[in-house]
Design a protein around this nucleic acid. Structure first.
Lengths: 359, 359
DNA sequence: TTGAAAGCGCTAACAT
DNA sequence: ATGTTAGCGCTTTCAA
């Protein structure tokens, strides 16, 4: 059949080739004009039934597929969006991307994937590339704070539909979709306090707006419950994302647990750190949750397979992706409605790593 | 602000415009012909230094960016490839994708990401889409066996540079990049045997070519060492990939371990299952590796954060991605060199979950 | 209901 | 060294 088709092609192209057939080939084969072929493809103008048949036959015979490039060039749209992530291997982002993909493929949009390795400059050049490739819109997951603050994204947003996911700076005129980190942290803290904990450590990494927010809420919640804040309960590690995080967390937590008056619970700013806490405890023969409660954040897959299973805050990454994609496609379709900031709920995932402290 | 932009548009149209500038605008601004502008952009023909300056000024002044669509339409290439994955959330694939991304971005190729949810038909339609979008080549990670066997990919390979990653069928004319699963399994089995194990269970899921291969090697290795095969040591679960796998593995392994003469070691066909084995052991108070050795396969991130750390077979996903991408780009650049089958080495990652059996 | 022709933004012969 | 012109494959007026 492919051979037959090959021959057919040879025959037709009068000299022949395996080249992709164009709309002109179809027109010739069907004995109609190019315009008519276009009409049956797009089904946007009346065409006599008989003609349509002929054209459709030709299309099948030649196995014609319209060239998107040419279509797009005329100006409507490329039906393509760009998705920029700091690192696709991050365990966190693939779920968001999947949500985006789901919505896009439903609406027959394609998706350019760009990985920046978390570099501020790479983020900018990737966006430039996307612009040149004429994408209809751009989604940025965890944009670098600097690029939001320095006006880069505000500038972008003027040129092209743009949605920033999980990054924010007050006053920047841009579309945002965010998780409610204040709420998530509050849920976690209130839960621990309700269990009876009054000595809760806070484990974070350096330099992240996200951890700053959480630390803020940590203080506020303690204050609200008139629980004194102890400086030695603020545990800080260098790097918050990746394998080394676990090891770093183990070190710092182990040290803290060996001091006098160790905390009865630890709030970890993400699940990697949460796992680190568990392993530190294990090494010291401290059992979780009996002797120490741990709560994580993010609900990435590792929290579900740890032993015991880690209680954590779910950010519903999948919904985050879907919501953002929907917003973007909506903006593409109906431009110029001003900017939106959508804040998504978080959910406390109560599993096995927390309980009331021993008296 | 959107209003402001609206106004700005109104104002500008007909004198200048906020519309993207085209090469013609640049030419007019610089007082040269379109061709000359094209020449300085592409830097492929001699242009007087003075003229070049003028043009570059114009380009900057107008903030001109060439339109890739138009460029591509002329026929060279879109500088874009398609990457098809069963599921980007799979923990396995993001690393491969990252490797691909790395190579592509280095060569200024963009990458369309397509997620098929592992569906045979979706795989085909996604590929159709990619073809219509005029990608220069396609990479498929873990292609469905059916689509390889039924000739679909062989057909594709005639139309476009195509590389299949981690899927194979003898006799199919196509490019393949594979991990050496026979070798990996062999390494794992020999390791266990060398440690002194003679009662090794094999844990797999149903319906996968990959598990079939491994089972085959399992038998052969035992036979080679004259170790009798025990039927009750073949453990099969329903689903091999995802969270539920851990639970399923726990069930079946727990059951086996409670029988008489339990194995002293278990070969798990992937790391999810490996984790399941560990947790089953934990529930039964069997300690790893003292009472039971476990070996996994894949070396996904969870194997590194389990307690104890899981010994496993590394498939070097990242290299897999990079190699495949390089091969594809190479084929795109120099077409028609026949097909290749590249087989990558595996590495035994000896960590903490295996030791010699107690006498 | 159909076709001719202009043009999307760019490149590449072919002149000059 | 630079400009003129003819397309790339398609959509879309405008005419018939």
């Amino acid at each position: 059949m492919c051979y037959a088709q090959f021959i057919e092609n040879l025959f037709y192209k009068g000299g022949g080739s395996l080249e992709k057939p164009t709309i002109a080939d179809v027109a010739k084969y069907a004995g109609v004009s190019i315009t008519t072929v276009s009409r049956v493809i797009n089904n946007n103008y009346p065409v006599k039934e008989e003609t349509r048949q002929k054209v459709e036959e030709a299309i099948n015979a030649l196995n014609f597929k319209p060239n998107y490039l040419a279509r797009s060039l005329i100006g409507k749209s490329t039906h393509t969006i760009g998705v920029v992530v700091p690192s696709i291997t991050n365990l966190f982002f693939p779920v968001v991307v999947k949500g985006i993909e789901k919505v896009c493929s439903q609406k027959t949009f394609s998706l350019f994937l760009c990985d920046t390795d978390g570099k501020e400059e790479s983020e900018r050049t990737q966006i430039q590339n996307l612009l040149e490739k004429q994408v209809d819109g751009i989604l940025v997951i965890d944009p670098r704070y600097e690029n939001i603050e320095n006006g880069f994204y505000e500038e972008c947003a003027k040129k092209i539909p743009l949605v920033l996911i999980n990054g924010y700076h007050r006053g920047v005129r841009c579309n945002f979709v965010l998780n409610d980190q204040e709420m998530g942290t509050l849920q976690a803290m209130e839960y621990l306090i309700k269990l009876g904990h009054r000595d809760i450590a806070f484990l974070r990494a350096k330099n992240s707006y996200s951890y700053d927010i959480k630390e803020q809420v940590y203080y506020e919640t303690l204050k609200k419950h008139q629980i004194p804040i102890r400086k030695e309960n603020i545990l800080v590690i260098e790097n918050g994302n990746g394998l080394e995080t676990v090891e770093l967390a183990i070190q710092v937590v182990q040290k803290r647990l060996e001091q006098e008056e160790p905390p009865t619970a630890i709030f970890a700013c993400n699940d990697w750190m949460g796992v680190g806490v568990m392993q530190a405890a294990k090494r010291l023969g401290i059992s979780i949750p009996e002797d120490l409660s741990v709560i994580g954040y993010d609900n990435i897959v590792i929290s579900e397979i740890s032993e015991p299973k880690l209680t954590t805050v779910d950010q519903n990454m999948y919904a985050l992706g879907k919501t953002s994609a929907r917003l973007l496609l909506d903006i593409i379709k109906h431009p110029g409605h001003g900017f939106q900031k959508i804040i998504l709920d978080t959910n406390l995932m109560i599993r096995e790593s927390c309980t009331s402290p021993k008296k």
